[in-house]
């Protein structure tokens, strides 16, 4: 455990420390001449119009939901794949049924038009 996961933790710490250090350094090294125009959000040169936090397409929400569903299936398949040879035919048939059920849902989603992007 220690051998394998400690380097990752340490690398994370180094990464964050390094990045924060660079930002702090660059903050003090760079010029500091801010003006109201410079600190306003970029909108191709004109003053920002209206609020940014408007409603956006519901499609993104649908994609997020579908992603969670399908990603859980993928995560579930990994342990199955690792012991596939041990399970043999039994494992294959089980997964075949599982993917079959998944495909029914997939076809339903497709027919409902959730995968259509307009």
């Amino acid at each position: 455990m220690l051998n394998e996961y400690l380097p990752i933790l340490i690398l994370f710490i180094i990464n964050i420390a390094f990045a924060v250090g660079i930002i702090i350094f660059s903050h003090f090294l760079g010029p500091r001449k801010s003006s109201a125009e410079k600190l306003s959000p970029y909108e191709s040169g004109v003053p920002p119009v209206g609020d940014t936090r408007i409603r956006f397409s519901v499609k993104f929400y649908l994609i997020a939901m579908l992603f969670i569903v399908f990603d859980i299936e993928v995560v579930f398949m990994y342990p199955w794949a690792v012991i596939f040879k041990k399970l043999g035919l039994f494992g294959f048939v089980e997964m075949f049924v599982f993917i079959g059920i998944l495909l029914i849902g997939y076809v339903y989603v497709w027919k409902k038009g959730a995968l259509k992007w307009e």
Binding site: I22, I23, F25, S26, H27, L29, G30, P31, R32, K33, S34, K38, L39, S40, P41
Partner: peptide, 9 residues
């Protein structure tokens, strides 16, 4: 690295 550190308001 030497650019100004801008955080819009």
């Amino acid at each position: 690295f030497l650019k100004e550190d801008i955080v819009p308001t």
